[in-house]
């Protein structure tokens, strides 16, 4: 067992929190703690925080907007500022942008439809904590399931993200109308990643593929230096 210590946050309406916890347990080992949105404090000595997919607060107002203002998110913002690694998947990505931890916003899909299918992704940055286990330019397949996944930021922000290597993943085909096909974005300091595709749904062959596994392996290697 590694000394890895992770937390998965559950909001009312989260529905991928258990999958996320299982993926972290199976790939990273260590301890995975479940944290409720109404908690004001996170467990101590966390290496990693995951915000799961789902429909927090019924997507009221805007997807992720209410969750971003919940008590636990103040603690998550503070932890991210201290350098704790934070992954937001799908609704978790929406929460991270609404909380201001990542730039841009996630808007209604260009086709207006809920998109639920496995899509090709290009790993754009393989130097980050989350993606070091992938090869440069590697094409992977990961499922998406969202209605508000069109990434938007103004042109200057997009240029900056691309120039600073903060685009982690790009869609390999038209999926949702995201600006410059961006599927995943890193924070300035590199310790926060938001992505619409679900790596936790691709960690073993029984899932139809295991391309998401390298993300969790990258994180645990980067944070505790252990091979898994």
């Amino acid at each position: 067992m590694s000394g890895f210590r992770a937390a998965v946050i559950t909001f009312p309406g989260s529905n991928c929190d258990r999958d996320m916890a299982v993926a972290i347990e199976q790939v990273c080992g260590g301890e995975v703690l479940r944290v409720w949105h109404g908690d004001a404090e996170l467990p101590e000595r966390l290496d990693f925080i995951a915000l799961p997919g789902g429909f927090s607060y019924g997507d009221y107002l805007r997807s992720g907007a209410m969750a971003a203002r919940s008590p636990i998110m103040r603690a998550v913002v503070a932890a991210a500022a201290r350098g704790v690694s934070v992954l937001g998947v799908c609704n978790g990505f929406q929460v991270l942008t609404e909380a201001g931890l990542l730039p841009g916003a996630l808007m209604r899909n260009a086709g207006l439809r809920f998109v639920c299918r496995t899509v090709p992704l290009e790993v754009v940055n393989t130097q980050s904590l989350f993606t070091a286990g992938y090869r440069a330019g590697q094409r992977i397949t990961i499922p998406v399931a969202h209605q508000d996944g069109a990434y938007y930021a103004d042109a200057a922000t997009l240029d900056r993200l691309e120039g600073e290597g903060r685009v982690a993943f790009r869609y390999g085909e038209a999926v949702n109308g995201s600006a410059r096909d961006i599927a995943g974005v890193l924070s300035d300091a590199g310790n926060v990643l938001g992505m619409m595709p679900h790596p936790e749904r691709m960690i073993e062959p029984a899932h139809g593929g295991s391309d998401g596994r390298a993300m969790f392996e990258s994180v645990v290697r980067g944070l505790v230096g252990e091979s898994v």
């Binding site: 805007r62 907007a65 841009g104 916003a105 938007y152």
Partner: peptide, 9 residues
């Protein structure tokens, strides 16, 4: 600013 509108969009 803090809630009703998302000032990014």
């Amino acid at each position: 600013r803090q809630l009703l509108a998302n000032m990014v969009i």
